[in-house]
Design a protein around this nucleic acid. Structure first.
Lengths: 253, 253
DNA sequence: GCACGGAAAATTGCATTCATTTTTTGAGAG
DNA sequence: CTCTCAAAAAATGAATGCAATTTTCCGTGC
């Protein structure tokens, strides 16, 4: 996940004379140890290998990745700016705690970004891309009917991703990936499984989503998507134990 | 600018026993040389002290800030992740070029974030905060009437900032500040001055904004704000020379 | 006169080192 | 036995050092 911008082997060696037209893809963190470490460490944390609130042990990660502390610390600074970890003055870094209110805020931002993606998708989506989403929608409906939770999740995420892709907006993609990563750090829980009402509701909302997208009704789709995320948030919040900030929270539907 | 999260002196030294309730504010980059350098360098670039597309000279900035290369390079990595600069594999960093299409994308994301801020503000804004926005609106109208462009800009920005503040969502604030910074790097141009139609239109849109906010009509305000940014984008794009990616583009209204 | 080639200089990326702060360990007092 | 305090140990933050790549500059050939 966290869709990386494509990293081709950088085939344009040699002739880059005075022509200023060498800005094809962003080679920013293409190779370079730093980029590698950043991606790996981000995955490592998002995957949940480090307990929430736990301190990030530099030494251990250094030998784990076989690098020195310099590139690792650079990666830590970036992850901090992404909001995944926090830097404690003179005390290193620790995995960011997601309190209940922060979780709510993140869900709202995701809702805002999806709303934007929907709006833009209605303007720019190609018939082929729409057809693909329609296909995924029907596949998801099939999963819903036969109570295939795993398949449903996969289709659901694929649909939302496709909408973001269809928006064809690189900064939006990046931001979306960033926030999705932050939320993904919390444990998936099969909350739909114990919440059939929400599942049905979510399915109906997805019908509306597809319908609005079919009609290219940007404003409408925007509202539906925001509401969709709001309901998802509520469903997740319902599952929450609120007390310990480590509470496993559902991220689904 | 780029509103920093408050940095209190971290008064909770000593007893943090098993109680997991020590997450008041983010001391992330509170002090620490790295945080200082990051903020200064970001300002330095946003202010436009480095030409667009120009390479970022480490050595020079090091002696300019009186630090070694390590914290500077850390800051560079973070700024790259923020999208302000780009890292070239073995060639250091350069200030990111904003092509016409990227500019459009950034405006859309700003529109999406403002739309979200409007929605949330309608839910959470306090009467006092609303009153303040109303006051700013009338002050802005005064500026408009007497053709005080500078005052108009200031009020305009203050209003949009207040809406974001009223949304009371920290991740949103951070993201908004990030994108605003990226756009701010392009030169301000008094495009409203040569585009009286747009000025009047913008003023009318702001009337609608205030009205929707007064009625706490979140969905409506969301649409108006997105459209407002869209029009702003169009006005800015109209000024653009499109050819050279260095084209000075207006960011106003 | 201009393009091509190569060596010197500069710059980058990462590792290592050093000073400072924090955390842990242990001894002693109450 | 527990609490306090101090010193050792570890870890952090930043500076410096070093190999590798890039850029610059100058000489040569056409």
């Amino acid at each position: 996940m966290v869709l990386d911008p494509v990293t081709e082997p950088e085939a344009d060696a040699g002739l880059d004379t005075a022509d200023g037209a060498c800005l094809p893809v962003v080679p920013s963190l293409a190779k370079s140890l730093h980029g590698e470490v950043l991606a790996r460490l981000r995955d490592y944390i998002v995957e949940g290998n480090l307990a929430a609130g736990a301190r990030v042990p530099e030494r251990m990660l250094c030998e784990r990745f076989g690098i020195s502390r310099t590139p690792l610390r650079e990666a830590l600074k970036v992850l901090a700016s992404e909001g995944l970890i926090e830097l404690l003055p003179n005390r290193g870094a620790r995995v960011r705690q997601l309190g209940a209110e922060e979780l709510v805020d993140l869900f709202d931002v995701m809702g805002g970004l999806e709303a934007l993606a929907g709006r833009l998708a209605c303007e720019k989506i190609t018939p082929a891309a729409y057809a693909e989403i329609e296909r995924l929608h029907h596949e998801m409906y099939g999963c819903y009917m036969r109570r295939d939770l795993h398949g449903y999740f996969a289709c659901n995420q694929a649909i939302h991703d496709r909408i973001v892709q269809a928006a064809d907006n690189e900064p939006l993609r990046t931001s979306y990936a960033n926030f999705a990563g932050r939320l993904r750090r919390v444990r998936y829980s099969a909350n739909l499984d114990e919440n059939r009402d929400r599942w049905g509701e979510a399915m109906r909302e997805h019908e509306e989503i597809l319908d609005a997208l079919r009609r290219r009704a940007g404003t409408e789709l925007s509202d539906i998507l925001f509401g969709h995320l709001r309901n998802k948030r509520r469903a997740a919040a319902g599952r929450e134990t609120a007390g310990p900030p480590d509470a496993a929270t559902g991220v689904a539907s």
